[in-house]
């Protein structure tokens, strides 16, 4: 009878040769290796998503015209306005604002609240949970490719319109430092919108319909406080105080304010600070929801 655990293991064989002691990789080698692995995975994810996105390329040009439509109506509304004296924005400013707005919206756009919550609801998430990569990276890759592809179609449309109204646009300072700050503001907008929307999507672990929460936190209020309907720079100062505090400004208006160039370096730095704080806050909440959510998650299938 086998009674002891030792007996289960069978007769002691030749002691297994321990693997040759690995020289622990130096920090540089480790970084190189990790980067290479991420690059490999990332580029494959992106190329797979690229192929998928190309399947729908027929709609892309139509979509970019659609993306222009709402800003177009708004800029026409603003040009038709009888303005009070001493306003902040001239006609050219409004034109510039609403030409650049669809590009910023497209760059920072995030739709995980629909796709991720759908995965959670239907159980498709299971498939991604089995893979040795955080499931969110699949969404990041999808967003990246979709955005590149859509921007390739949107930017020519915007450029044509900008050329058409060219003489009416205000002069722009497009020096390198400004472009770099602009890029940083766009990156902040993208990351903030992603963390915020994804965190809302993660409530899908507990709530049947995430769309309601999204509607309250992320829809009309985003258009209002983000500066889609009324450029924030034209708001009265007590409202600026509110919009400066809320996250929405940093997902839309902030890069446009930097493009327009009336913002002082101090204000810009403050903006980056507040935006980064919101990123961090949403990230921490999102991470907690993710961990707890996975424990609560019971969807079958996929």
């Amino acid at each position: 009878m086998i009674t002891s655990p030792e007996a289960l293991r069978g007769p002691p064989g030749p002691t297994p040769t321990s693997p040759p002691p690995e020289t622990p990789p130096g920090p540089v080698a480790w970084v190189v290796r990790a980067t290479r692995r991420r690059w490999r995975i990332g580029s494959r994810l992106v190329s797979a998503n690229w192929q998928m996105a190309l399947g729908y390329r027929g709609m892309l040009l139509v979509d970019s015209f659609r993306a222009m439509l709402n800003p177009l109506v708004l800029v026409l509304a603003w040009l038709s306005v009888t303005r009070q004296a001493g306003g902040e924005f001239s006609d050219g400013d409004y034109l510039l604002y609403y030409l650049a707005l669809p590009v910023v919206t497209k760059v920072s756009e995030c739709w995980t609240v629909f796709t991720l919550s759908e995965e959670i609801r239907t159980g498709t998430l299971n498939r991604h949970l089995l893979k040795p990569l955080h499931p969110l990276w699949f969404h990041v890759a999808e967003h990246l490719t979709q955005k590149i592809l859509q921007l390739l179609h949107l930017v020519p449309v915007v450029a044509t319109l900008a050329w058409a109204v060219g003489p009416r646009l205000p002069a722009l300072d497009l020096s390198w430092p400004r472009l770099v700050v602009m890029g940083a503001a766009l990156a902040l907008a993208t990351i903030l919108r992603f963390t915020m929307t994804t965190t809302i999507a993660m409530t899908g672990f507990w709530i049947e319909r995430v769309e309601n929460l999204n509607l309250v936190l992320n829809a009309a209020i985003f258009a209002l406080m983000g500066g889609m309907v009324v450029p924030l720079e034209t708001l009265p100062s007590w409202m600026r105080w509110v919009t400066d505090f809320l996250p929405y400004r940093y997902t839309l208006s902030f890069p446009l304010e930097i493009l327009r160039g009336r913002i002082t370096p101090g204000q810009a730095a403050g903006g980056f600070g507040v935006g980064a704080m919101w990123c961090l806050a949403w990230f921490v909440v999102g991470q907690r929801l993710w961990r707890r959510g996975l424990l609560a998650y019971t969807a079958h299938g996929g």
Binding site: V81, T82, R83, Q84, A220, V230
Partner: peptide
């Protein structure tokens, strides 16, 4: 309500819209 505020906000800058 937020949509309503959008329309009202026009008039912080404008006197009439078209």
């Amino acid at each position: 309500t937020v949509g309503l505020a959008q329309y009202a906000l026009f008039f912080t800058v404008a006197e009439t819209v078209a």
